[in-house]
Design a protein around this nucleic acid. Structure first.
Lengths: 148, 148
DNA sequence: TTAAGTGCAAATATTTTGCTGTCAC
DNA sequence: GTGACAGCAAAATATTTGCACTTAA
Protein backbone atom coordinates (compact mmCIF):
# COMPACT_ATOMS: atom_id res chain seq x y z
CA UNK A 1 0.00 0.00 0.00
CA UNK A 2 1.69 3.21 -1.12
CA UNK A 3 -0.51 5.59 0.94
CA UNK A 4 -2.04 5.42 4.39
CA UNK A 5 -5.84 5.41 4.65
CA UNK A 6 -5.82 8.30 7.10
CA UNK A 7 -5.85 11.77 5.67
CA UNK A 8 -2.85 14.01 6.27
CA UNK A 9 -4.19 17.18 7.94
CA UNK A 10 -4.05 20.19 5.62
CA UNK A 11 -3.82 17.95 2.60
CA UNK A 12 -6.99 19.32 1.10
CA UNK A 13 -5.75 22.85 1.60
CA UNK A 14 -2.40 22.31 -0.10
CA UNK A 15 -4.07 20.36 -2.87
CA UNK A 16 -6.20 23.39 -3.66
CA UNK A 17 -3.38 25.90 -3.23
CA UNK A 18 -1.38 23.96 -5.79
CA UNK A 19 -4.33 24.30 -8.10
CA UNK A 20 -4.08 28.08 -7.75
CA UNK A 21 -7.09 28.45 -5.44
CA UNK A 22 -6.80 31.49 -3.21
CA UNK A 23 -6.71 30.64 0.47
CA UNK A 24 -8.58 32.65 3.08
CA UNK A 25 -9.10 32.20 6.80
CA UNK A 26 -12.74 31.24 6.15
CA UNK A 27 -11.84 28.64 3.57
CA UNK A 28 -9.19 27.19 5.84
CA UNK A 29 -11.79 26.75 8.58
CA UNK A 30 -14.29 25.12 6.23
CA UNK A 31 -11.68 22.82 4.69
CA UNK A 32 -10.47 21.77 8.10
CA UNK A 33 -14.02 20.92 9.17
CA UNK A 34 -14.54 18.75 6.10
CA UNK A 35 -11.18 17.08 6.45
CA UNK A 36 -11.59 16.13 10.07
CA UNK A 37 -15.28 15.16 9.88
CA UNK A 38 -16.08 11.85 11.54
CA UNK A 39 -19.41 11.58 9.74
CA UNK A 40 -21.29 13.10 6.82
CA UNK A 41 -22.02 16.77 7.38
CA UNK A 42 -24.57 19.05 5.76
CA UNK A 43 -24.06 22.74 5.01
CA UNK A 44 -25.49 23.87 8.35
CA UNK A 45 -23.29 21.54 10.37
CA UNK A 46 -20.25 22.65 8.42
CA UNK A 47 -21.18 26.26 9.11
CA UNK A 48 -21.62 25.65 12.83
CA UNK A 49 -18.32 23.84 13.17
CA UNK A 50 -16.43 26.30 11.00
CA UNK A 51 -17.71 29.22 13.07
CA UNK A 52 -16.12 27.70 16.15
CA UNK A 53 -12.75 28.16 14.46
CA UNK A 54 -13.52 31.47 12.80
CA UNK A 55 -16.62 33.26 14.02
CA UNK A 56 -16.82 35.44 10.91
CA UNK A 57 -17.64 32.54 8.58
CA UNK A 58 -20.95 33.20 6.87
CA UNK A 59 -23.47 30.70 5.57
CA UNK A 60 -23.10 31.95 2.00
CA UNK A 61 -19.35 31.45 2.18
CA UNK A 62 -19.97 27.83 3.14
CA UNK A 63 -22.20 27.32 0.11
CA UNK A 64 -19.78 29.12 -2.18
CA UNK A 65 -16.87 27.05 -0.87
CA UNK A 66 -18.78 23.78 -1.25
CA UNK A 67 -19.53 24.75 -4.83
CA UNK A 68 -15.83 25.46 -5.38
CA UNK A 69 -14.82 22.11 -3.90
CA UNK A 70 -17.31 20.26 -6.06
CA UNK A 71 -15.99 22.03 -9.16
CA UNK A 72 -12.49 20.94 -8.26
CA UNK A 73 -13.64 17.38 -7.63
CA UNK A 74 -12.41 17.59 -4.05
CA UNK A 75 -15.69 16.59 -2.42
CA UNK A 76 -18.71 14.50 -3.28
CA UNK A 77 -22.25 15.59 -2.63
CA UNK A 78 -24.66 13.03 -1.21
CA UNK A 79 -28.38 12.93 -0.57
CA UNK A 80 -28.39 9.90 1.69
CA UNK A 81 -31.85 9.00 0.45
CA UNK A 82 -33.31 12.27 1.83
CA UNK A 83 -34.01 10.60 5.10
CA UNK A 84 -34.52 13.80 6.99
CA UNK A 85 -35.37 16.85 4.95
CA UNK A 86 -33.78 17.68 1.66
CA UNK A 87 -30.35 18.71 2.72
CA UNK A 88 -27.19 17.53 1.09
CA UNK A 89 -24.22 15.96 2.74
CA UNK A 90 -20.61 16.30 1.80
CA UNK A 91 -17.54 14.16 2.08
CA UNK A 92 -13.91 14.38 1.08
CA UNK A 93 -13.36 12.55 -2.16
CA UNK A 94 -10.91 9.74 -1.64
CA UNK A 95 -9.15 7.63 -4.19
CA UNK A 96 -11.80 5.01 -4.61
CA UNK A 97 -15.54 5.45 -4.90
CA UNK A 98 -17.79 3.81 -2.37
CA UNK A 99 -21.51 3.39 -2.10
CA UNK A 100 -23.77 4.41 0.77
CA UNK A 101 -26.38 2.26 2.42
CA UNK A 102 -28.94 4.19 4.45
CA UNK A 103 -31.03 2.28 6.98
CA UNK A 104 -34.54 3.66 6.82
CA UNK A 105 -35.29 2.37 10.30
CA UNK A 106 -32.30 3.40 12.46
CA UNK A 107 -30.77 5.98 10.12
CA UNK A 108 -27.33 4.42 10.11
CA UNK A 109 -25.19 5.12 7.06
CA UNK A 110 -22.81 2.38 6.00
CA UNK A 111 -20.14 2.82 3.38
CA UNK A 112 -19.00 -0.01 1.17
CA UNK A 113 -16.34 -0.38 -1.47
CA UNK A 114 -16.91 -2.97 -4.13
CA UNK A 115 -15.01 -4.27 -7.09
CA UNK A 116 -18.37 -4.83 -8.78
CA UNK A 117 -19.06 -1.11 -8.50
CA UNK A 118 -15.78 -0.45 -10.27
CA UNK A 119 -16.66 -3.02 -12.94
CA UNK A 120 -20.04 -1.41 -13.45
CA UNK A 121 -18.44 1.99 -13.99
CA UNK A 122 -15.99 0.48 -16.45
CA UNK A 123 -18.92 -1.05 -18.30
CA UNK A 124 -20.57 2.37 -18.65
CA UNK A 125 -17.36 3.94 -19.89
CA UNK A 126 -16.92 1.17 -22.41
CA UNK A 127 -20.42 0.14 -23.53
CA UNK A 128 -22.09 3.54 -23.31
CA UNK A 129 -19.01 5.57 -24.15
CA UNK A 130 -19.84 7.74 -21.16
CA UNK A 131 -17.00 9.62 -19.50
CA UNK A 132 -17.71 9.43 -15.77
CA UNK A 133 -16.81 12.37 -13.54
CA UNK A 134 -18.97 11.48 -10.53
CA UNK A 135 -20.77 8.31 -9.61
CA UNK A 136 -23.20 8.15 -6.74
CA UNK A 137 -24.81 4.93 -5.59
CA UNK A 138 -27.18 5.21 -2.67
CA UNK A 139 -29.22 2.37 -1.32
CA UNK A 140 -32.11 2.60 1.13
CA UNK A 141 -33.48 -0.28 3.16
CA UNK A 142 -32.86 -2.09 6.41
CA UNK A 143 -29.44 -2.75 7.87
CA UNK A 144 -28.37 -6.08 9.33
CA UNK A 145 -29.34 -5.02 12.85
CA UNK A 146 -32.78 -3.72 11.88
CA UNK A 147 -33.99 -6.40 9.50
CA UNK A 148 -35.99 -9.21 11.01
CA UNK B 1 -41.79 -12.49 -22.18
CA UNK B 2 -44.93 -12.58 -20.04
CA UNK B 3 -45.52 -8.81 -20.05
CA UNK B 4 -45.08 -6.11 -22.65
CA UNK B 5 -42.58 -3.33 -21.94
CA UNK B 6 -45.16 -0.65 -22.60
CA UNK B 7 -47.32 0.41 -19.70
CA UNK B 8 -51.03 -0.36 -19.81
CA UNK B 9 -52.83 2.97 -19.24
CA UNK B 10 -54.51 3.08 -15.84
CA UNK B 11 -52.33 0.28 -14.56
CA UNK B 12 -50.88 2.41 -11.81
CA UNK B 13 -54.35 3.46 -10.74
CA UNK B 14 -55.73 -0.08 -10.49
CA UNK B 15 -52.57 -1.23 -8.77
CA UNK B 16 -53.17 1.32 -6.03
CA UNK B 17 -56.92 0.69 -5.82
CA UNK B 18 -56.20 -2.96 -5.23
CA UNK B 19 -53.96 -1.88 -2.40
CA UNK B 20 -56.94 -0.11 -0.85
CA UNK B 21 -55.80 3.40 -1.73
CA UNK B 22 -58.72 5.78 -2.11
CA UNK B 23 -59.04 7.21 -5.59
CA UNK B 24 -59.91 10.84 -6.21
CA UNK B 25 -60.16 12.91 -9.38
CA UNK B 26 -56.96 14.72 -8.39
CA UNK B 27 -55.03 11.52 -7.84
CA UNK B 28 -56.26 10.14 -11.11
CA UNK B 29 -54.93 13.21 -12.92
CA UNK B 30 -51.55 13.00 -11.18
CA UNK B 31 -51.21 9.26 -11.77
CA UNK B 32 -52.07 9.66 -15.40
CA UNK B 33 -49.41 12.34 -15.82
CA UNK B 34 -46.77 10.11 -14.25
CA UNK B 35 -47.83 7.10 -16.25
CA UNK B 36 -47.76 8.81 -19.62
CA UNK B 37 -44.63 10.90 -19.01
CA UNK B 38 -42.12 10.77 -21.83
CA UNK B 39 -39.32 12.09 -19.67
CA UNK B 40 -38.49 12.64 -16.01
CA UNK B 41 -40.78 15.18 -14.41
CA UNK B 42 -40.37 17.25 -11.27
CA UNK B 43 -43.17 18.25 -8.90
CA UNK B 44 -43.86 21.53 -10.71
CA UNK B 45 -44.12 19.88 -14.11
CA UNK B 46 -46.42 17.24 -12.71
CA UNK B 47 -48.59 19.97 -11.19
CA UNK B 48 -48.75 21.91 -14.44
CA UNK B 49 -49.68 18.86 -16.51
CA UNK B 50 -52.17 17.56 -13.95
CA UNK B 51 -53.92 20.91 -13.84
CA UNK B 52 -54.60 20.65 -17.56
CA UNK B 53 -56.72 17.60 -16.79
CA UNK B 54 -58.21 18.86 -13.55
CA UNK B 55 -57.78 22.54 -12.85
CA UNK B 56 -58.45 22.11 -9.13
CA UNK B 57 -55.27 20.12 -8.47
CA UNK B 58 -53.18 21.90 -5.88
CA UNK B 59 -49.43 21.85 -5.44
CA UNK B 60 -49.71 20.33 -1.98
CA UNK B 61 -51.83 17.51 -3.35
CA UNK B 62 -49.06 16.75 -5.81
CA UNK B 63 -46.51 16.54 -3.01
CA UNK B 64 -48.83 14.46 -0.83
CA UNK B 65 -49.53 12.10 -3.71
CA UNK B 66 -45.85 11.73 -4.58
CA UNK B 67 -45.20 10.87 -0.95
CA UNK B 68 -47.96 8.27 -1.09
CA UNK B 69 -46.57 6.74 -4.26
CA UNK B 70 -43.09 6.55 -2.78
CA UNK B 71 -44.47 4.83 0.32
CA UNK B 72 -46.17 2.27 -1.88
CA UNK B 73 -43.02 1.74 -3.89
CA UNK B 74 -44.83 2.81 -7.05
CA UNK B 75 -42.37 5.53 -8.05
CA UNK B 76 -38.70 6.28 -7.65
CA UNK B 77 -37.33 9.65 -6.72
CA UNK B 78 -34.26 10.90 -8.58
CA UNK B 79 -31.95 13.85 -8.26
CA UNK B 80 -30.31 13.56 -11.65
CA UNK B 81 -27.10 14.95 -10.21
CA UNK B 82 -28.84 18.27 -9.33
CA UNK B 83 -27.97 19.63 -12.71
CA UNK B 84 -30.37 22.51 -12.51
CA UNK B 85 -31.52 23.50 -9.05
CA UNK B 86 -32.33 21.07 -6.31
CA UNK B 87 -35.61 19.67 -7.50
CA UNK B 88 -36.43 16.01 -7.55
CA UNK B 89 -37.63 13.99 -10.46
CA UNK B 90 -40.01 11.08 -10.43
CA UNK B 91 -40.52 8.03 -12.52
CA UNK B 92 -42.80 5.03 -12.52
CA UNK B 93 -41.04 2.11 -10.92
CA UNK B 94 -40.75 -0.71 -13.42
CA UNK B 95 -39.75 -4.29 -12.81
CA UNK B 96 -36.03 -3.86 -13.11
CA UNK B 97 -33.85 -1.12 -11.68
CA UNK B 98 -31.85 1.00 -14.04
CA UNK B 99 -29.18 3.59 -13.55
CA UNK B 100 -29.15 7.16 -14.82
CA UNK B 101 -26.31 8.86 -16.64
CA UNK B 102 -26.53 12.65 -16.70
CA UNK B 103 -24.43 14.53 -19.22
CA UNK B 104 -23.08 17.61 -17.51
CA UNK B 105 -22.53 19.32 -20.85
CA UNK B 106 -25.74 18.77 -22.84
CA UNK B 107 -28.01 17.70 -20.01
CA UNK B 108 -29.13 14.50 -21.63
CA UNK B 109 -30.29 11.73 -19.30
CA UNK B 110 -29.60 8.19 -20.40
CA UNK B 111 -31.02 5.14 -18.68
CA UNK B 112 -29.19 1.85 -18.58
CA UNK B 113 -29.98 -1.59 -17.27
CA UNK B 114 -27.08 -3.75 -16.24
CA UNK B 115 -26.66 -7.24 -14.92
CA UNK B 116 -23.66 -5.95 -12.99
CA UNK B 117 -25.95 -3.55 -11.17
CA UNK B 118 -28.12 -6.50 -10.16
CA UNK B 119 -25.04 -8.43 -9.06
CA UNK B 120 -23.87 -5.50 -6.99
CA UNK B 121 -27.23 -5.30 -5.22
CA UNK B 122 -27.12 -9.05 -4.56
CA UNK B 123 -23.67 -8.60 -3.09
CA UNK B 124 -24.95 -5.97 -0.65
CA UNK B 125 -27.87 -8.17 0.38
CA UNK B 126 -25.51 -11.07 0.94
CA UNK B 127 -22.22 -9.62 2.20
CA UNK B 128 -23.65 -6.68 4.16
CA UNK B 129 -26.90 -8.37 5.12
CA UNK B 130 -28.66 -5.21 3.98
CA UNK B 131 -32.26 -5.52 2.87
CA UNK B 132 -32.60 -3.20 -0.14
CA UNK B 133 -35.84 -1.31 -0.70
CA UNK B 134 -34.55 1.33 -3.10
CA UNK B 135 -31.33 1.60 -5.03
CA UNK B 136 -30.34 4.72 -6.87
CA UNK B 137 -27.27 4.92 -9.05
CA UNK B 138 -26.65 8.23 -10.74
CA UNK B 139 -23.62 9.05 -12.78
CA UNK B 140 -22.50 12.47 -13.97
CA UNK B 141 -20.05 13.12 -16.78
CA UNK B 142 -19.95 13.48 -20.53
CA UNK B 143 -22.08 11.46 -22.91
CA UNK B 144 -20.74 9.84 -26.09
CA UNK B 145 -21.74 12.84 -28.21
CA UNK B 146 -20.19 15.44 -25.90
CA UNK B 147 -16.90 13.84 -24.99
CA UNK B 148 -13.95 14.74 -27.17
C1' DT C 1 -2.69 46.98 -7.00
C1' DT C 2 -6.60 44.46 -8.12
C1' DA C 3 -9.26 40.56 -9.00
C1' DA C 4 -11.22 37.40 -6.12
C1' DG C 5 -13.50 36.58 -1.83
C1' DT C 6 -16.51 37.99 2.04
C1' DG C 7 -20.61 39.36 5.08
C1' DC C 8 -25.02 40.89 5.06
C1' DA C 9 -29.61 41.08 3.77
C1' DA C 10 -32.88 39.96 0.73
C1' DA C 11 -34.60 36.93 -2.77
C1' DT C 12 -35.61 32.38 -4.67
C1' DA C 13 -36.78 27.64 -4.75
C1' DT C 14 -38.73 23.69 -2.96
C1' DT C 15 -41.39 21.25 0.16
C1' DT C 16 -44.35 20.87 4.35
C1' DT C 17 -48.11 21.89 7.46
C1' DG C 18 -52.48 23.56 9.91
C1' DC C 19 -56.96 24.18 9.20
C1' DT C 20 -61.50 23.80 7.47
C1' DG C 21 -64.51 22.12 4.20
C1' DT C 22 -65.48 18.04 0.88
C1' DC C 23 -65.91 13.52 -0.97
C1' DA C 24 -64.98 8.34 -1.68
C1' DC C 25 -66.43 4.26 -0.05
C1' DG D 1 -71.89 8.56 8.00
C1' DT D 2 -67.10 9.09 8.65
C1' DG D 3 -62.39 9.02 8.02
C1' DA D 4 -59.44 10.12 4.44
C1' DC D 5 -58.41 13.73 1.19
C1' DA D 6 -58.69 18.35 -0.80
C1' DG D 7 -57.57 23.46 -1.37
C1' DC D 8 -55.70 27.44 0.55
C1' DA D 9 -52.52 30.13 2.81
C1' DA D 10 -48.76 30.39 5.55
C1' DA D 11 -44.53 28.45 7.34
C1' DA D 12 -40.39 25.92 7.13
C1' DT D 13 -36.22 24.58 4.94
C1' DA D 14 -32.45 25.01 1.82
C1' DT D 15 -29.85 27.55 -1.26
C1' DT D 16 -28.59 31.63 -4.17
C1' DT D 17 -27.64 36.38 -5.32
C1' DG D 18 -26.60 41.58 -5.46
C1' DC D 19 -23.82 44.73 -3.55
C1' DA D 20 -20.36 47.26 -1.11
C1' DC D 21 -16.37 46.33 1.64
C1' DT D 22 -12.04 43.56 2.43
C1' DT D 23 -7.98 40.92 1.49
C1' DA D 24 -4.60 37.45 -0.66
C1' DA D 25 -1.18 37.23 -3.81
Amino acid sequence: MPFPQTEIPGRLQSQLSERGVRMTAQRRAILSVIETAKKHLDASSILRKAQKMDATVDRSTVYRTLELLKRHGAIDELDLMHMEGERHFYERKTGRDHLHMACLRCGKITEFESELFEDLKKQLERDCRFHILVARLEVGGYCAACRK
